[in-house]
Design a protein around this nucleic acid. Sequence first.
RNA 1: CGGAGUGUAGCUCAGCCUGGCUAGAGCGCUUGGUUCGGGACCAAGAGGUCGCAGGUUCAAAUCCUGUCACUCCGACCA
Length: 604
Amino acid sequence: MHWRNYFIPTTKETPKDATAASHILMLRAGLVRQQAAGVYTYLPLGYRALRKVEAIVREEMDRAGAIELHMPALTPWGLWVETGRSQTMGDTLLRIAGPEGDWRSSLVLGPTHEEVITEIARAYLKSYKQLPVNLYQIQHKFRGEARPKSGVLRTREFLMKDAYSFHEDKASLDKEYDNMYAAYCRIFTRCGLPYLAVEAESGAMGGDSSHEFMVLTDAGEDRVAISDKGNYAANLERAAAAPPAPAPDVPLATTKLVHTPNAGRIDEVCPVLGTQPRDMIKTLIFATQPPLAGSTSAAEGGRAMRVVALVRGDHELNEHKLHRAAGVVLELADPATIEEVTGAAVGFAGPQGLIDKVDKLVIDRDVAVMRNAATGANKTDYHVMGVNPGRDFPLSGDKVVVADIRCVTDGDPAPAGDGGRLLLRTAIEIGHVFKLGTKYSSAMEAWYLDAHGKTQPLIMGCYGIGLNRIMAAAVEAHHDDAGIIWPMSIAPFQVLVIALDPRDEQAMRVAGDVHDQLAAAGVEVLLDDRDERAGFKFKDADLIGIPLRVVVGKKSLAAGGVEVSDRRTPEVKQLLSPDAAVQHVTQRVREGEAPAERGGRSSR
RNA sequence: CGGAGUGUAGCUCAGCCUGGCUAGAGCGCUUGGUUCGGGACCAAGAGGUCGCAGGUUCAAAUCCUGUCACUCCGACCA
């Protein structure tokens, strides 16, 4: 490919709206152009890289035995009603606007395809003899993201590989889950990504049944906890620290009421009490959500259930863990409810005596081992010191649960209890494997007949990969001040030949020959034949980040050949004859296409 | 959805507070010339309904109202 005849709109200046490195570089290198918030064109160079990613994903999915199909981006509204996600997904579903009763309003731009695939399974998968089967597609997804951000990292339209497997039992699902997990490791390794598989929140399914694949980068929007021993990784929703040491054997103080006017927040009250956040108990009042419109199970006869959660003053409550411990979906109660429960203004709640006023008391295990703590007095403008679990509020009983309900913090001991410390890092999620179970098959009545002729719901797994995110994550992970440094496997071109001076006939001829020979050898080569000054071309070359570079100019020809260099190590230049350069470069490309195992660390 | 901010040439921005000739700069683009191994220089050009609508005024990029879009922080994220 000759640059002159191609389309690579690079820019020197950084668009003001870009903050993430990948966003800045992808715009500057002419890979993408934003058309609207969270909506991007993939320009030729960017599209080539995206298609490379797609090819790797397709190859490895096929190799893993998954079967490709193609579902529509337009999905029937009725299917979403069947699973209830027409309600629960809310504004994430992008519906086609149309007058009431118009065919348009019966269509949704698919944000994911569980419903559609389950409809297909319901229609065709009737016998255990057809199982297991894993169907996948590479398709555009549409989501009503409230806030697109960071370039192509979070968009309203994106390319996703989504696979769905169907099984007759848990063992078969487990096997396919492991198969997909391994395929994902191969995919991300081939894409040159320094990825990490972390345990993820698995919602209703529980257990060990969900992993997210992450790339650590500041541009990400997820938080993960990693043990510095390298043997544990989980996302923040799920991460657990080692259990606390038993309570210290110290004398129990008597409780003391302290006047703390206008000091309702932990950071305000600590100076007044002369204590530390870690010696305080945070008392949070929750209530069950009002039942969704259309739901038939109006819980508790319409009365909201009230739950008190206790965490240490220096800890953050983890709502996912609280949900699991309490067994119900909860929301922070409104101020009126809090005042009614505690009898005090917001900010002065304490656990003493609350047990009779609420339906459940959930105590973080770190709170259970506190001694002589400080907390709210359930009296406006007052706190209490010398509060002790077990004495001043119960640690056992029908309504009491002691559990891990907090977020881990940086430096917490790792759960293995091996002396490891947890480190908190930001990351981009690039893939997710998930055991769905029978959630969708039951809701949509996708049954099959087992070997005993008995009707059973299909057991499902689902496996997603964000292709655009792989591309952006690769740029995040591999760049320097001058530009992108593509891994060979997903580089838009593998080799860039630069003819330094277009008026130098010999240089042009040699560069053209090198280009033609490489192309003939099956190498993806771009020839910079533009009538530009040398420095200009070098800057563009650094920016677009083609892994290998061959420079042909007067100097190199006078020295007997052409210069070969690697984008990663620009200072190392090798002078070779044109033929030797072609051979050398071809060899390097072949090596680079199949990188040795590296990168991926796993928590399993 | 809450909070903050920004819309002026393809890109980055000045001008707005304190209304006043024909709306500016740099980059990019076109033409001519010089230059030619790390984003050159000179000269001449093309390119803008100042987001949109309404209002105030003799006069609006500038003031007021509304609206749309985009960005950032937060909430949300099968």
